[in-house]
Simulated assay, not measured.
Amino acid sequence: MRMADVDFDTPLFTDHPPGWQTPSDIVSGFNLAWALELKERMRISSSQPHAEGVRQLLPAEYRFDTLGRLITLNPLASIAQFGRNPLIRLSSLCGAWQLFDLMNQTWRIKPGDFQQFSDLLAFVTGGRERPSLYRDLSANISKCLLAVRVRRAYSEQDELDLAEEWFLTGDEELTFTDNRGSGSLLFHFSKMHQVPLPLFSHEFVETVWATARVTVDRLGPDRVIAMHSDRIESLTDLLERGAEKATKAQQEMPWQSFQWFDYWPGWR
């Protein structure tokens, strides 16, 4: 399978309303949601929008992860169940690829430049211990997908990695079970460097949000909001209805039950 075979703008989720039917639509929704939340955080604390305590001061539509519930699976779901859900797979892949295209406007990867390749691999996959793209955000899936894109740009390869093919197809034969019994994918960072990654349900939501946050940080929230201004009403409706459902459930349910409560409000 090659890059030319991939189209994130084809309506695949035809049970969704217009504006939410393609993988690109879903990723844009997450980007816009984070941009709106970041603006609200900056209004509350312009110098420290991520400071402890800011979240509690946010309006209800930003305190609950309504949009994340759209791609949330049971925490005990298997990799086979992930494979049968194109929404979570394609949202993760599309977001990572769009971020790569955005970052490569600056990186301008030079095929065969090993020093640049090594530096970018470290930057993409690193955490808080060194300068890195995702800093302290949880984004294992997106880090691996970006690393593969960096490797393919460096080596001028259009053929997709087998791990990328899984995100497109969900083919269970592309996965394996590691020695701990976890369903995993094997990402090829280089000819000699293969990285196995166990997949867990929570990581899909975390990686989509982390990718959105880095994208918005790169573009700026005002630009992202302007780019998707026609979608604000649709998104706000979802967030407000989800927050209303979550607020009511939180008041009526014990925490142990509420943390697994599905407050996705549905389309209308």
Rank of each mutant, 00 (worst) to 15 (best):
A77G: 02
D25A: 06
R213G: 01
L197R: 01
E52L: 14
D161F: 05
S234E: 13
N31G: 01
S190R: 07
L38Q: 03
S24N: 11
A139Y: 07
L145Y: 05
P18Y: 05
D222S: 13
P23K: 03
N179T: 12
L32Q: 05
A96H: 08
D230L: 04
Q194P: 00
P265R: 05
P221W: 07
H202V: 13
M227N: 14
D161Q: 09
E172P: 02
F13T: 08
S201V: 05
Y134M: 10
W34R: 10
L70F: 02
L239A: 04
I109A: 07
S155M: 08
K191G: 14
A33I: 00
L67T: 02
L73T: 06
I109D: 04
R149S: 12
E165V: 15
D171C: 12
G220H: 08
V205T: 13
R130L: 14
D178I: 00
W264C: 10
Y134P: 01
E159L: 12
E165M: 15
V224R: 10
L219S: 11
A212Y: 04
P17G: 03
Q116R: 05
S24G: 07
L58W: 02
D161K: 08
V148F: 03
I109M: 15
H16R: 12
T10M: 10
F114P: 01
M192P: 00
D237T: 14
H193A: 12
Y134L: 10
R55D: 14
P18S: 06
L90G: 05
D136S: 15
A210S: 15
L174I: 02
F189M: 15
Q250S: 13
G112H: 11
M103Q: 14
R63G: 11
Q56H: 04
T72P: 00
W209F: 10
F200Q: 13
L32M: 07
T236F: 02
L36C: 06
F13K: 11
F64R: 12
F204C: 06
Q256A: 15
P254T: 09
F200S: 12
A77D: 01
